[in-house]
Amino acid sequence: MLKIQYLVSGGVITNYKCSSKCKHCCYSSSPKWPNDYMTPSLADEIFAVLKRLGCDAIHIGGGEPLLQPDKIMSVVEAAHRNSIGIEYIETNASWYKDAASAKAVLKELKDHGINTLLISMDPYHNEYIPFWKVKGLIQACSDVKMNVFPWQMEFWDEIDALDDQKTHSLEEYIRLYGQDYPVRLMGRYGLNLKGRAFMTYRPFMKKQPVDQILKESKPCRLLSGIYHFHVDLYGNFIPQSCPGFSIPLKELENGTDPDRYRLFNSVESVGIKGLFELAEKEYGYMPKNEYAGKCDLCYDIRNHLVLELGLDLPDLKPEGHYKYI
């Protein structure tokens, strides 16, 4: 059976809809996603399971969780009911309009026991969010004594060198800091190269023959990892390393039949070769000659199943991960 008996650290994705479509986003969040948000009842269910599995604290992210600040409060309340601490809430500051309205939201968060905001600041976000919003939100946090976890502060001077009233494309950063800036940026940020982040950096990666990738196939045990997992608003357990693969958390707690989640199980237990052989035999998948590694091949197979064949497969959820990349 596929089963998880213990979880250490992770987060809750309250929504995938976002004000941005950042090039580094491994979850493929964007404005195109439906305006769905985690319900209070599902939040209760998720936090109860997490507590039973030994996870005492989580962070909240998205998408942009503060696009709907009224709805995040019920999620926070559900965490408290289940004795789950909230380490921080992630935000890109896009919702900031002025000090007064921002401080009203921050004060309500503090009243609900939230003490820290992780505020994104990097060239990826700056393509969509002018830096004055980030500065304004940081000042508002200071005014109400809300802690700020800046992610990442090392980019401050580079962003601040440009007009903070405007957004700036990655091409502008390249002109200012050099042609190799995107690659250096990837290393400095510490990206998880999945989802849209993988599509962004795929052209920079060395290609390998498909036969070589299959020959080197090993089980991908990170799919059942207990660190930096996420649970999304649909109740899916999102592995720490691979968004787009999922199993309902409540099923993983009790153990679920691997035959129902054959794609997930094939990668977790055999590796990319297992997924390839399954897709080739049962879904008529035909590979290209070369790929930028096993993850590129894996995404090509999954895109074939979800986008080309239009299949509704339980372990390739949510479909928006592929549709809105």
Score class of each variant (00 low, 15 high):
K218C: 09
C25A: 03
P40D: 02
T91S: 14
Y261W: 09
K166N: 07
Q68A: 09
L309E: 06
Y6A: 08
C18Y: 04
S29K: 03
Q152T: 11
Y189R: 10
K273D: 12
M1C: 10
G187L: 10
D259I: 08
E277S: 09
A93G: 00
G284H: 07
N35K: 15
D257G: 10
Q152M: 15
S169R: 02
N82Y: 12
L222M: 15
H59R: 06
C220S: 11
V148Y: 02
I174P: 00
V183E: 03
K3C: 04
F149W: 00
K273E: 10
E268G: 15
E154M: 10
L162E: 01
P318N: 02
H321Q: 08
M286C: 11
P258V: 12
F264M: 06
Y16N: 07
G235Q: 03
I226A: 13
I72R: 00
Q68N: 14
L313N: 03
Y173I: 12
I89N: 03
G244Q: 06
S41L: 11
P69D: 08
D157A: 08
Y324E: 09
F198Y: 13
A197K: 01
P203H: 05
D44N: 13
G320S: 09
L67G: 03
G195E: 00
D157P: 08
G62E: 02
D315W: 05
S74Q: 09
L117P: 03
V306W: 12
E308F: 13
R188M: 05
Y227P: 11
H59L: 00
I86T: 04
V134A: 05
N303K: 12
S269L: 13
I272H: 06
G63F: 11
P239C: 07
T256L: 06
W95Q: 01
L118I: 07
Y128V: 09
I213N: 01
W95T: 00
V148W: 04
H304D: 01
I84S: 00
D257Y: 09
E64T: 11
H230K: 12
V49T: 14
K317I: 08
Y283C: 07
Y234K: 06
V183F: 03
R260F: 10
G271A: 08
Y201M: 06
Y173C: 06
S169F: 04
C25N: 07
Y128G: 05
P243I: 02
